[in-house]
């Protein structure tokens, strides 16, 4: 599929802006299937970036490469200026150890499509286990912070409940609180509302909107176009493993330039 050159956002960042994420020439293959065919992407502090595209286009894979749940086949990823996955200068490079990767992931929060809450822990324990076991925060402090976060997402009365008793929307809000408990600089959202019944989507989007307003750097993979238009600073359209178009949501979604994006938007609108 011929990819049109995307409007370049890779110019060297001006003084004062902080690059939170930089992907350079990112490639990823699963066996014979090449899912990412060279992605260059920069996200700056406080930016909200929404990734859209068809299933299999590679948008989720980009997210999973950033927190190293998938190991890129080629290319480099930098988070907060530090390279993820490999360390050392050229010639003396080596893969990061388990401990180093884990330490890097503290800065990155991820919210999954299927929530992945820990069923054997209560809601509060789900939120506090990260701070307590990974950062070594004392229990009292962790629980105070946990309850505060649960209040932020509107679930402080569910602190003692277990995930199986919660609705999908509630579970996902707990999942967001769990990620926020690690005080990340960057939040990744992998189709956060795709597994939810329609009437539960709103409560999750509300939390995400509030996070956005507070200045969190966010990368979101979603099909919620209205939400994307409202919250995103930049929308990136991925197709066939490459970035085909990117730009402000108003431009991209209302005046798509590439045929692939036009086709995609048509099929999304048909779904409504």
């Amino acid at each position: 599929m011929p990819a049109e050159p995307a409007p370049d956002r890779l110019a060297a960042p001006g003084a004062g802006t902080r690059e939170i994420v930089r992907n350079e020439k990112l490639r990823k293959s699963f066996g014979d299937l090449e899912v990412l065919k060279g992605v260059d992407l920069v996200v700056e502090q406080g930016e909200k970036v929404v990734l859209i595209g068809r299933s299999g286009s590679g948008k989720t894979t980009i997210l999973r490469c950033i927190n190293y749940l998938e190991r890129p086949s080629a290319g480099a990823i930098f988070v907060n200026g530090a390279r993820i996955g490999r360390v050392g200068a050229d010639g003396a490079e080596r893969d990061m150890t388990d401990a180093e990767i884990a330490a890097a992931r503290v800065e990155i929060g991820m919210v999954f499509q299927r929530f992945n809450l820990f069923p054997h822990l209560s809601v509060l324990e789900n939120v506090t286990i990260g701070p307590m076991r990974v950062r070594g925060t004392p229990r009292a402090e962790a629980e105070a912070m946990g309850r505060d976060l649960l209040r932020k997402v509107g679930l402080e009365d569910k602190a003692g409940a277990y995930p199986e008793r919660l609705s999908g929307g509630q579970q996902q809000r707990v999942a967001i609180a769990r990620s926020l408990a690690m005080q990340p600089r960057l939040m990744l959202f992998d189709e956060p509302t795709s597994s939810l019944d329609p009437e539960l989507v709103g409560e999750v989007l509300r939390v995400m909107r509030r996070l956005a307003k507070e200045g969190m750097t966010m990368m979101i993979v979603t099909h919620e176009m209205a939400f994307a238009e409202e919250v995103a600073d930049r929308v990136i359209f991925i197709d066939g493993g490459v970035i085909v178009e990117q730009g402000p949501p108003g431009d991209l979604l209302r005046r798509p330039r590439s045929p692939q994006l036009q086709l995609f938007l048509q099929s999304v609108l048909e779904r409504r």
Binding site: L69, A102, A103, R105, I129, G130, R133, A181
Partner: peptide, 20 residues
């Protein structure tokens, strides 16, 4: 998904095993 979520909050492999 359980171990992925645990890894995503920065747990190391032995922690993932032990707690999750």
């Amino acid at each position: 998904g359980q171990s992925e979520a645990a890894r995503a909050i920065g747990m190391r492999r032995w922690q993932v095993m032990r707690w999750i």
